[in-house]
Design a binder for these strands. Structure first.
Lengths: 128, 128
DNA sequence: GCATTCAGTTTACAAGTGTAGTCATTACGC
DNA sequence: GCGTAATGACTACACTTGTAAACTGAATGC
């Protein structure tokens, strides 16, 4: 079997909202996805259908036929996505260095007490 | 004078590259900006000119006439930009919490030794 | 059996983006 | 003085994204 050398296609912000619903619970039908996201985003079912098919063609979501309809499941894993998005940002804004990002968030007071202690724990862990 | 209630317009990735050049050194002429970025991005001068005028209309860059040409300077500050981009990402991917982002980067082995010690120092600083 | 309904597919369309060519003006070299 | 080079302005055009309506085929109720 030849290697899968597809470059993973970029997922837009609206598409990401749909992925979040599927990461939460899957498989879901299109209407079920709409139940999860249409209220908050003020989308119509048609919009969700469009986003789902774009995600399918980007191979981020798989479909399994279930009678006349489809059940949608994520193919792309959440950590894969958050990982690559995070790396993209760090690369683009901070030359690949994470520390300045951290400094930035600290300056913007975007770090909660919980963040601080979790990060301390994480650092201790990494030091072990 | 009425308050400036413009919502800051979003800066695209290509535009960001131009901003980086201006943050590095300014004011610059369009050709000077091109000198800085056209090689790496494989852009023509025309592309840079377009990006510059889009940045001007987005009020991220100011112009000062200098004879027949313009000198461009950043209006948007780098920390403003990196701050809001970072916050956007953290909000979108991690519900506003920074700790999971770092866990993510740690898992992806995107943290260098330097990052770790700088972050430790920063944490100590924040704890003071 | 036939109408209604429901699902996916196709088409639409404006705004933003990446990338650049053409146009018009003006200054400078000779 | 006049051609040429440089510069900003205007125009172009394909692709992505957000948002959704119209279309089509199948299942289901009666």
């Amino acid at each position: 079997m030849p290697a899968n050398n597809d470059k993973p296609e970029r997922i837009s912000e609206a598409e990401h909202a749909v992925m979040e619903a599927l990461w939460q619970r899957s498989p879901l039908t299109a209407s079920e996805v709409c139940d999860e996201v249409c209220d908050t985003r003020e989308w119509s079912l048609a919009t969700v259908k469009t986003l789902l098919s774009r995600l399918v063609s980007k191979q981020a979501v798989s479909t399994k036929p279930d009678g006349r309809r489809f059940l949608y499941s994520p193919l792309l894993e959440r950590t894969e996505y958050t990982g690559s998005e995070s790396r993209r940002l760090v690369d683009r804004l901070f030359g690949g260095r994470a520390a300045p990002l951290f400094a930035q968030l600290a300056e913007a007071e975007a770090l909660t007490e919980d963040d601080l202690s979790e990060m301390e724990a994480l650092l201790r862990e990494l030091r072990k």
